[in-house]
C-alpha cells in the first residue's frame, strides 16, 4: 500500500504545483508508481504544468460524486507508464468535495500506487481541509520571504492539529547570491524559525519557467540545477540518504568568514 503525501504551503504561488509535478515525474522516472491528485478545484493547473490538459474527460468531482470510478478519471502520462494524474474539476468550487469523500478516495487509490501526491490549493479553508484529509504525510513548500515563512508556520500548526505530525520542508526559489549579500534569509535562518526537518532546497531557476511553458518537468532535465535539486528530493522521499546540495556560498568570502569566526 502506498503513501499519500500532501504538498501544501498556506501562501499562494510559492511553487506547490511545480513541486507536485516535478516530484511526481521524478518518482515515476525512478521506477515508483505515482498518482498525482490536483485538489485545487476551480483553479485546475497541474494538468497544464504536466502537459496533459488535452486529455481530460472526467475529473475529481466526477469521482467523489460517484459519476465514474477513479480509474476511469485517471490520465496516464505520455512519458511514464507508471505516472497518472487525477485532474481537478474546473467548473465547480471547493465545496463540491468534502474531507470525508477525499479520505475515502485516497484510501482507495493508495492500494494501486507507491505514492499518491496531492497538490493542495493555497489558503487554510475547505480546499486545504479536503487536500489534507486523506494524507499520511505532508510536505510544506515555502520561499525565503517573511510572508511565505509566516504562512508556512501557520500551516505547520494546523497540520499538527490534524495529526499530520513532522511535516517536511522544501524551500523553493532560493537565491544564494542574495543570501550571501545579506539580502535574503538563509536555509539555516528558516529552519531555525520553523523548527522542522528540511527535505530539500530548490534554487530560483529560469529553466523551471521554460520547462513549464512546454508542459515538461525540469526534473527530467539533467543540465539544470533545479532539476538536480528535485532529483535529490525524490531520492530522499524514496528513503535514500542524500546530503544537501551545496549551492551554499563556499566562495572566498564565505570561507574567510568561517576562518575569522563570523559564522
Amino acid at each position: 500500500m502506498g503513501e499519500v503525501i500532501v504538498i501544501t504551503s498556506g501562501k499562494g504561488g510559492v511553487g506547490k504545483t511545480t513541486t507536485s509535478a516535478n516530484l511526481g515525474a521524478g518518482l515515476a522516472s525512478a521506477g515508483s508508481r505515482v498518482c498525482l491528485i490536483d485538489a485545487d478545484i476551480g483553479l485546475r493547473n497541474l494538468d497544464v504544468v504536466m502537459g496533459l490538459e488535452n486529455r481530460i474527460v472526467y475529473d475529481l468531482v466526477d469521482v467523489t460524486s460517484g459519476n465514474c470510478s477513479f480509474r476511469k478519471a485517471l490520465i496516464k502520462d505520455k512519458r511514464f507508464d507508471k505516472l497518472f494524474l487525477m485532474p481537478a474539476a474546473q467548473t465547480k468550487d471547493k465545496t463540491a468535495v468534502n474531507p470525508a469523500q477525499m479520505e475515502v478516495l485516497c484510501n482507495e487509490i493508495k492500494d494501486d500506487f507507491d505514492y499518491v501526491l496531492i497538490d493542495c490549493p493555497a489558503g487554510i479553508e475547505q480546499g486545504f481541509r479536503n487536500a489534507i484529509a486523506g494524507a499520511d504525510q505532508a510536505i510544506v513548500v515555502t520561499t525565503p520571504e517573511v510572508s511565505a515563512v509566516r504562512d508556512a508556520d501557520r500551516i505547520i500548526g494546523l497540520l499538527e492539529k490534524e495529526d499530520l505530525r513532522e511535516p517536511k520542508l522544501i524551500v523553493n526559489r532560493m537565491r544564494h547570491q542574495m543570501v550571501k549579500h545579506g539580502d535574503m534569509m538563509s536555509i539555516d535562518d528558516i529552519i531555525e524559525i520553523l523548527a522542522i526537518d528540511l527535505l530539500g532546497v530548490v534554487p530560483e531557476d529560469e529553466l523551471v519557467v521554460v520547462s513549464t511553458n512546454r508542459g515538461e518537468m525540469v526534473v527530467l532535465n539533467n543540465n539544470s540545477k533545479s532539476g538536480q535539486a528535485y532529483r535529490n528530493i525524490v531520492r530522499r522521499i524514496r528513503g535514500e540518504d542524500v546530503p544537501m546540495m551545496s549551492l551554499e556560498d563556499s566562495g572566498l568570502f564565505g570561507k574567510l568568514r568561517r576562518i575569522i569566526g563570523l559564522k
Binding site: 549579500h181 545579506g182 535574503m184 534569509m185 538563509s186 535562518d189 524559525i193 568570502f253 568568514r257
Partner: peptide, 14 residues
C-alpha cells in the same frame, strides 16, 4: 564587507 551587518534585510526579515 562580509554581508553580516545586523541591519541587512536578511536579518531584519528574520
Amino acid at each position: 564587507i562580509f554581508g553580516r551587518e545586523s541591519s541587512s534585510s536578511r536579518n531584519v526579515a528574520k
